[in-house]
Structure formats: C-alpha cells, structure tokens
Computed example of a mutant assay.
Amino acid sequence: MSNLRLNLGCGFKSLQGYINVDRFGNPDLKFDLETFPWPWPDNSIIEIKLIHVLEHLGQQTDTYLQIIQEMYRICANGATIQIIVPHPRHDDFIHDPTHVRPITPSGLSMFSRRLNQEWQNQGCANTPLALYLNVDFELIQTNFVPSQLWRDRYPDRISDLQLLLQESALYNNLIKEVEMLLKVIK
C-alpha cells in the first residue's frame, strides 16, 4: 500500500481513485477518524481530502492534535491535504451543532516547523505546535469563498480579497467557506 489517496469523512460523496472513509453510511472503509492509530502504514498516503469534515472532529484538543499527528504519520513527503471548511464567522458554521472546532489558516499554520522556528526567534508567544507534535505542514494555498451576501453587497468588487477580509473582520456571513491546501514536509 503506497501512493494512496484518501477522501476522509466522505459522507455520501465518494470519489473515484480515492479510498472513501466515513464512520457512517456505506463508504469503502467504515472507520471513526477519532480512533487511533489509523489503519494506514507510515508514509503511504500522497493525498488527503477533508471536505467539510475537520470542523466536525476533535472537540477535545488532545483528539484534534492526534488527528494532525496521524495525518502526518501516514502521509509521504510532499503529500497534499485539501481542507475545505465553513468560515467560523458564517452561520453555516455557527448553526450546526456537530461543528466542534473552527479551522482557520492561522490555526493550521501553527503546524509549520518553519513558522514555529521564526516565532521562537522573534520571541512570539505563538504555541509551536509543529515542534511539540513533531509534525511539519506548510500551508501553500488559501482561498476564501465569498457568500451570496457579499456578492449582493459588492457586485462590482466580488474578487476584491483585501476588501473581503477587511469587511469580514467586522461583519459575519461575508465568507462562506475557506479552502486550504497543506503540503507535508518530511
């Protein structure tokens, strides 16, 4: 088993070319992602998709951090992890009682060894999670998906990212979801 692709928490959306994994339904593999260790060997995965999944996992901090460690363990060097989550200031996140943790680009950046070392050198108070957990992920891409409210409010500035981020710091429901891509560094 090597060069595997996982669609974790697939729900009813199975993807061809992936091992579709979920605790519920009829996936290729029925498995609870909050159970450790995961059933894949070290360094055997080249791609993981977590599409509207990670915000449902790891209500307890220790469990969330174990999920991060398991992803690192099973991924090969250079593997990618696609994460799509509702924006934590959007009603889609707030209203779902199964959403247990906001997932943000800044939060995922805490698993970068490079950034942890920069923060230590600068005397920052950021928690060096990559160093504590012996993991290393680089956030290589972030995309903010504007909501319909944003599109209606600024139809001529839909793609103005600076304005979107500035306004979303003040108002809820402007960013519907966040798409992030991590690269595994080993």
Rank of each mutant, 00 (worst) to 15 (best):
E118A: 08
E138V: 04
S147F: 09
P88D: 04
R101G: 03
P86H: 12
A130M: 06
N126H: 09
Y132W: 13
T142S: 15
I84E: 12
L163T: 11
I84V: 11
D152F: 13
Q148K: 13
Y154D: 02
W119A: 00
Q120E: 13
Q117W: 03
T98I: 08
A125C: 08
C124G: 03
E138F: 05
S147V: 07
H90P: 02
W119E: 00
Q141C: 10
N116A: 13
Q117G: 00
H95G: 12
P146L: 09
P146E: 04
G107N: 01
I140A: 14
F111L: 00
S112K: 01
Q117T: 04
Y154W: 11
V135S: 07
I84H: 11
N134E: 08
T98A: 10
T127Y: 05
L149G: 01
L133K: 07
D160F: 08
N143T: 10
R157I: 08
L161I: 15
R113I: 02
C124R: 12
F93C: 01
V135P: 07
L139R: 01
Q141E: 14
N134T: 04
L131E: 08
N143S: 07
Q148G: 09
H90I: 04
Y132N: 13
I158S: 09
W150K: 07
S106R: 11
